[in-house]
């Protein structure tokens, strides 16, 4: 029973992703990113640093993000991101900023699965190029393990880019071993990318709501390129 439900939960969005992206050929350089959980805690603030380094036949791309986020009520959290990227001259600098909101739609554990939504608007600093992302977040717990899925639809628009849609699907299967070490397997798909690899995350609590969370993953591209792998990491301080 559980297995059948898990398979449905995992593969349904993947099929939708494949269908929705057929016919588009937009290059997604940074498909590997954070996998969002559909939960919001009130009275919580956080600083986060994210790092993604992708190496493939086109070279090495490096993206770093700095974010500040806070919940604004029991169900909604907002986050401001500064995004840095390394350009073709190997100079690293601020390229865009982003405003994001996460909405916890259902109470954790109340229904068969937990549901949330994500909305992000990002603008390049130098150019009139925008990206609006909306997505569904879902998580299902099976004892000490859980599956998290993110199905995202991204709309790029602006005067200097071709207006276009694409979609992404991200999935994480996590085992809650101990708070400090929680191994996981992650899957990322987009129109021209399929990546799979191990990750781990952990949490260390200090005092009250103060805690540090970390994540690290190594995702190998499975889409036929001779070399395509991404190292991702993040550190989050909640208070």
């Amino acid at each position: 029973m559980i297995t059948r439900h898990a398979m449905l939960l995992v593969f349904s969005p993947m099929l939708v992703t494949t269908t929705a992206t057929a016919g588009h050929k937009i290059i997604s350089n940074n498909v590997v990113d954070k996998i969002y959980h559909p939960y919001v805690l009130p009275l919580e603030q956080e600083f986060e640093w994210r790092f993604m380094s992708r190496q493939n036949d086109d070279g090495n791309s490096l993206v770093q993000r700095l974010a500040y986020g806070r919940s604004i009520n029991e169900r909604v959290a907002v986050e401001v991101n500064l995004v840095g990227d390394r350009d073709q001259k190997d100079d690293f600098g601020l390229v865009s900023y982003e405003l994001a909101a996460r909405w916890m739609i259902t109470e954790q554990g109340k229904y068969f699965a937990d549901w949330g939504a994500l909305f992000e608007i990002e603008k390049e600093v130098q150019r009139d190029a925008w990206e609006f992302t909306s997505g569904i977040l879902v998580e299902k717990e099976f004892g000490r393990t859980s599956i998290t899925g993110n199905y995202l639809v991204v709309y790029k628009f602006g005067n200097v880019v071709d207006n276009s849609f694409h979609s992404e699907f991200r999935m994480q299967y996590r085992y809650r071993f101990i708070p400090e070490i929680q191994p996981a397997l992650e899957l990322y798909t987009a129109e021209d990318f399929v990546g799979l690899g191990p990750s781990f995350m952990g949490i260390h609590r200090f005092d009250g709501q103060k805690q540090i969370k970390w994540e690290m993953g190594f995702i190998a591209g499975l889409n036929g390129d001779s070399k395509d792998h991404t190292l991702r990491a993040s550190v989050e301080y909640e208070f």
Binding site: Y39, P42, L43, R176
Partner: peptide, 9 residues
């Protein structure tokens, strides 16, 4: 509770 996988204010 890490064991229950729950956080709630």
């Amino acid at each position: 509770s890490f064991e229950l996988n729950r956080e709630k204010v």
